[in-house]
Design a protein around this nucleic acid. Structure first.
Length: 933
DNA sequence: TATTCCCGCCATCTC
DNA sequence: GAGATGGCGGGAATA
């Protein structure tokens, strides 16, 4: 349609004229203001001549813009209107002087792709019924929107990447709306995980960090290219859903480079990264890497950035992402934050495979068979049916067998993890991850039913949301444990208990079988998300005490990036913000000075370098032997197996940990952890937080318990018989897993745990000693879950629930975690107790303050902010289509938002903004340069 | 000055 | 061969 396009080009004036009316419907006041000054001329002209632009016509258009349904009706009624409009446009064009034309020219903003996309989206319902005519004629759309077709392609391509539209024929697309969105996102997330995007992101960040610390750039570049570069799946192509494959060869031919693929990759980055914030730079690098661009030459990079902006604009219009800024060492960088629905991957659907779980088959055979079963169940059913599998998925099955063997024959060395070679390091872990993924899948399927049950009660709902959030925030290990830790040990929530699924994951490296206590959902996340998760059997001192802290810490550890609100990001709190906040916290918390006050902070550089070396071993997110060697005391000695494993896993899984942080933690651990090998004593003596290695905290999926490790690590001494029994014989002990939930723990364990920091927490004051351990977890959960599940505040509800079940408070009462601790009548909507969560967060912050020496202001501010942001503008729970829907026509963050079009039928699809109101709490922008680290 | 990103050329692919 | 797609980068608008 080159000609047409050219025509369009040549007829700019026409366009502008055309635009005027359209602008009125979809765009902004700014346009109006711009036009109105001149106003009369154009308008007066329009009115008389442009029959279509009579007040009535305008009204019609406005209404139609606001209401897709009406519009559709109108459209059906007659396309004649359109032709009339076109004619009128032409006519007007002829009558406009150059000047007028000039002035009527929309500003750049008004021509933005984002706004255009809004207009485009306004034409269709979020969830069109099958009966609806969802055909999209590019020509028509371009015409109606007064843009070149080229621009429509940009939009459509991105939409296509999300399967919101699909190509029907030449010049024709079909609108699917958001029906497929969740599925697509799930798929993308999966693929993203398999592609190790998390790792790639981490590598890039690491590299950048290293750059800071001198280091020859070229070498680094190479490294980057390698690491960031394509793994085996670099050739990733478009991810399709069944029935939505591209029909045109042309599309396929270019798809590897198309905007579509870029868009998908871009989305994947969000979905797999923990704080779901991705900077353009990182995204561009990753995309370039995958395109086999050896040289990150600037032009390529620039081009990539441009395209990313294009994509971002569309995604923003879809309210899937939001612009923010990331403050890094080198300044502020544009970034985008995921504000779309959380991709849960059917996590909650998990139905407990094993109830008590406590007993984990210590025998690798069992695990093996279990895996087999999992894979059997998984592949025939789910794996293939729902979508076109990414090649990597296909490999999954093939590798299972070999994995099994490897696992069995794997060396017993616990620390044998990664390797420098990306490939090496990644291969094993990834396989493990694959296995885990399989199991996860199985769990998913089994747990569907459970999910339904869960949703029946409020509590259940809360739990669900919590779990979802947990899942969602894989990298935020903390969140995950919230629910379970509290409840499970106490037996308060049997069903949760049930949901805990022990999964045997033989350690590939050590041949030591690990039992992973995964909440079904966790299992999913954990396995899937961390392609390479390597398990290490390291003793961990205080499981109980640490866990809760662990949660919080792990969350904190996520990223060094600090985000600041973007232009349009100022006053609203949303889930994304929370994440951002977390980052801030993270950064701060792990600043050596702060967290440790340890003199060693000075040695940062040294430690950092050390870390770097470690990192190399970690390339694949797993720690190598060297690693272990380097932190013998902290890992091997001080950490209880379960925790350490979890942490390890988390790290691997999330792969988000900043190496610097790790270093910090190393020091921290060394410094803070008493050399005392006694787990209990260790726990007691030191702030829990210190006992948690940063990198180890990130595993949000649960604890990995090395069954055999008690004796294998040479750490036997570390464990008392009791401890061993606790670790190895699950029945007795129930530790709460940050994510998964329950880890059996004896009462003595609880009491033994001394968590000074927690004492600060008001909650603790009201909680019996036995429950103390759990409380912090709850708090942390608040933090975690808050961002993920804004609407429901699981933390508070869970807390209350727990307290109630503990008999600490009457059944009808709710406890406000605030210092005053005033029981309040249960509100009709207990789940929405923002104040509570806030308080809790604050408390958490206090806890951290005490524990980590974090500045209260920072923490509190962060916490508060995070909590306050709890209620994202984006539907957190994609479960209900409506949730997603609502965002569609809501005023987009940007200035270009079509705010006018408030409620279209599309909104009625289920959109409900009420719950989306955010509580704004002034946030402090934390700009901590990484230098501090 | 840096960031954004619109615009439209033009290569490639499809019909 | 005409038309459809869409990669790509110049350069202008905006911050």
């Amino acid at each position: 349609m080159g000609t047409e396009e050219k025509e369009n080009h040549s007829s700019e004036p026409q366009k502008s004229i055309l635009k005027t009316p359209l602008k009125q419907l979809a765009t902004s006041h700014s346009v109006l203001t711009e036009i109105q000054p001149l106003t009369t001329p154009p308008k007066s002209k329009e009115a008389p001549h442009g029959d279509p632009w009579t007040p009535t016509a305008n009204l019609k258009i406005l209404i139609s813009a606001a209401s897709p349904e009406i519009r559709n009706r109108e459209q059906k009624k007659g396309l004649s209107d359109r032709s009339e409009i076109i004619e009128a446009k032409h006519y007007l064009h002829e009558h406009l002087s150059g000047d007028e034309y000039e002035k009527s020219q929309p500003s750049r903003k008004e021509k933005s792709l984002g706004l255009l996309c809004h207009k485009f989206l306004a034409r269709y319902r979020n969830y069109p019924s099958p009966a609806e005519n969802s055909d999209i004629c590019l020509d028509e759309v371009a015409e109606e929107l007064n843009v070149e077709r080229r621009r429509i392609y940009d939009i459509v391509n991105v939409l296509e990447s999300l399967h919101m539209v699909s190509r029907l024929a030449k010049n024709r697309y079909i609108w699917h709306g958001r029906h497929n969105l969740n599925k697509t996102l799930q798929t993308l997330k999966k693929v993203g995980e398999e592609n190790k995007y998390t790792h790639q992101i981490q590598m890039i960040k690491k590299r950048e960090y290293e750059h800071e610390f001198e280091l020859d750039g070229e070498k680094k570049e190479d490294m980057v290219t390698k690491h960031v570069g394509p793994n085996e799946h670099s050739e990733m192509c478009f991810v399709e859903l069944p029935g939505m494959e591209f029909r045109a060869a042309s599309v396929n031919s270019r798809k590897d480079k198309s905007l579509r693929v870029m868009s998908q990759k871009f989305v994947m980055l969000f979905l797999v990264s923990t704080p779901q914030i991705v900077s353009l730079e990182v995204a561009a690098k990753i995309l370039i890497g995958e395109d086999h661009v050896e040289d990150l030459d600037k032009s390529k990079f620039k081009t990539k950035i441009r395209r990313l902006y294009d994509i971002a604009n569309v995604l923003s219009s879809l309210e899937l992402i939001k612009k923010v800024h990331v403050t890094e060492e080198r300044g502020r960088k544009p970034a985008f934050k995921w504000t779309g629905p959380e991709v849960i991957q059917d996590i909650l659907d998990t139905k407990p495979i094993t109830i008590t779980t406590a007993l984990v088959p210590s025998n690798s055979e069992e695990s093996k068979s279990s895996k087999e079963q999992c894979s059997k169940n998984l592949f025939p059913s789910r794996g293939k049916q729902s979508f076109t599998r990414h090649p990597s998925l296909i490999k999954l099955v093939k590798t299972i067998e070999s994995d099994r063997r490897k696992i069995h024959s794997a060396p017993s060395s616990p620390s044998k993890t990664s390797t420098n070679g990306d490939q090496n390091s990644s291969s094993l872990p990834s396989k493990m991850a694959q296995l885990a993924a399989i199991c996860k899948e199985q769990l998913e399927g089994q747990s569907r039913e459970l999910k339904r049950k869960l949703t029946k009660s409020t509590l259940e709902c809360k739990l669900t949301s919590t779990a979802e959030s947990i899942l969602k925030s894989e990298p935020r290990p903390t969140s995950s444990c919230q629910t379970s830790p509290l409840l499970q040990p106490l037996g308060v929530l049997p069903f949760i208990h049930n949901s805990v699924s022990p999964v045997m994951l033989p350690q590939s490296h050590s041949a030591i079988p690990y039992a992973i206590y995964l909440h079904p959902s966790q299992a999913q996340t954990a396995t899937t998300s961390s392609p390479s998760f390597t398990l290490q059997s390291v003793p961990c001192p205080n499981v109980t005490g640490t866990k809760s802290v662990l949660d919080a810490n792990s969350k904190i550890l996520l990223n060094l990036m600090t985000t600041e609100e973007g232009d349009s990001y100022t006053d609203e709190g949303d889930a994304g913000n929370v994440i951002a906040k977390e980052r801030h916290i993270t950064k701060i918390e792990f600043t050596p000075e702060r967290c440790l006050k340890r003199p060693q902070a000075l040695q940062e550089t040294h430690s950092i370098k050390k870390c770097k070396s470690d990192e190399k071993g970690l390339e694949d997110v797993s720690y190598g032997d060297s690693h272990k060697n380097e932190r013998p005391s902290s890992r091997a000695v001080h950490l209880e197996p379960a925790v350490s494993n979890v942490q390890e896993g988390s790290q691997n899984k999330s792969e988000k940990i900043d190496q610097n942080v790790e270093c910090c933690f190393d020091h921290e651990k060394r410094d803070c952890l008493p050399e005392d090998k006694s787990r209990v004593s260790t726990t007691q003596e030191m702030p829990v937080a210190f006992a948690i290695p940063a990198h180890e905290t990130l595993f949000s999926s649960g604890y990995l318990i090395p069954l055999a490790q008690c004796t294998q690590h040479g750490n036997e001494a570390i464990f008392s018989n009791k401890e061993k029994s606790g670790i190895c014989s699950l029945p007795q002990m129930t530790y709460s897993s940050p994510i998964a939930g329950v880890i059996p723990v004896t009462a003595s364990e609880f009491t033994a745990v001394n968590i000074p920091a927690f004492h600060v927490t008001p909650l603790k004051l009201m909680v019996s000693p036995s429950s103390v351990a759990a409380v912090p977890a709850v708090n942390s959960s608040c933090l975690n879950s808050s961002h993920t599940n804004p609407v429901q505040n699981p933390s508070s509800s869970v807390l209350n629930f727990t307290l109630q079940h503990l008999g600490l408070i009457p059944a009808g009462m709710q406890v406000s975690p605030n210092p005053v601790l005033q029981p309040v009548p249960i509100s009709p909507k207990p789940e929405r107790v923002n104040p509570v969560s806030e308080n809790v967060s604050l408390q958490q912050g206090q806890v951290f303050k005490n524990v980590s020496q974090i500045t209260e202001c920072d923490l509190n501010g962060q916490s508060v902010a995070a909590v306050s942001l709890e209620q994202p503008s984006v539907p957190v729970k994609p479960k209900e289509p409506q949730a997603v829907t609502e965002s569609f026509f809501r005023t987009p963050g940007g200035p270009d938002a079509i705010s006018a079009v408030a409620s279209s039928p599309a909104d009625s699809d289920g959109a409900d903004e009420i719950s989306q109101r955010t509580l704004y709490v002034p946030q402090r922008k934390l700009e901590v340069s990484e230098d501090q680290l």
